[in-house]
C-alpha cells in the first residue's frame, strides 16, 4: 500500500489537501476561513485531475507540426486532454461560487459585525427576542 501511495504521490497530496479543505469548509466557524477551505478543496481536486491526465513521456495536447508540413496525430504523443477540460470547468465554477459566498458574507458582516456564523445566530435570536418583547409591551399598553 505504501509503495502505491509513493507511486501515486500527487494524488495522495491532492486527497490530503482536499480532506483539509473539506474539514475547513465544514467545521470552521469563521466564514472567510470556510471559503478558503472551499478553495483549498477545489484546488486539490484540480491537482488530482491534472495528475490523472498525465501520461509519462508525452506532450501537452496541442498538435505539433511535422517537419515537412501536416500534423503529428498519433495518440501516443499527447497526454489525456479530458482532465484539462474538467479542470477548466472546475475553476470557473469555483470562482463563481467563491464570489457568491463572499457577497453573502459581506452582507452578513454588515449587519452583525461578525464573521462567525454562530455569533450571527446568537445576535439574530437576541434581536428577535427584543423585537418580540417590544411587541408584547406595545400590546400591553394598548390593552391598558
Amino acid at each position: 500500500m505504501l509503495e502505491n501511495l509513493l507511486l501515486n504521490h500527487y494524488e495522495a497530496a491532492a486527497v490530503i489537501l482536499s480532506g483539509i479543505g473539506l474539514t475547513n469548509l465544514l467545521l470552521q466557524r469563521n466564514l472567510i476561513k470556510k471559503i478558503i477551505g472551499l478553495n483549498i478543496m477545489d484546488t486539490a481536486v484540480y491537482l488530482f485531475l491534472a495528475a490523472k491526465g498525465y501520461v509519462a513521456g508525452r506532450a501537452a495536447p496541442i498538435l505539433i507540426e511535422k517537419a515537412g508540413g501536416g500534423w503529428l496525430t498519433s495518440s501516443s504523443i499527447y497526454v489525456n486532454p479530458v482532465p484539462a477540460g474538467l479542470v477548466l470547468t472546475g475553476i470557473v465554477v469555483s470562482v463563481s461560487v467563491t464570489a457568491f459566498s463572499l457577497a453573502l458574507t459581506l452582507r452578513l458582516y454588515e449587519h452583525y459585525g461578525t464573521l462567525n456564523i454562530d455569533e450571527a445566530l446568537l445576535k439574530m435570536t437576541q434581536e428577535q427576542e427584543e423585537l418580540e418583547a417590544k411587541i408584547e409591551d406595545a400590546e400591553e399598553e394598548v390593552l391598558a
Binding site: V15, G21, L22, S101, R107, A120, L121
Partner: peptide, 27 residues
C-alpha cells in the same frame, strides 16, 4: 434581510460540501 442572508449562507456552505464530494467522486 439578515435572516435570509444567514439562511442562504448556511444552505450554500452545506451545498458546497455536497458538490465538493460529488466532484471528488466523479474524478
Amino acid at each position: 434581510g439578515p435572516a435570509t442572508t444567514r439562511a442562504a449562507l448556511r444552505y450554500l456552505i452545506m451545498s458546497l460540501v455536497g458538490s465538493g464530494l460529488v466532484m471528488i467522486a466523479i474524478c
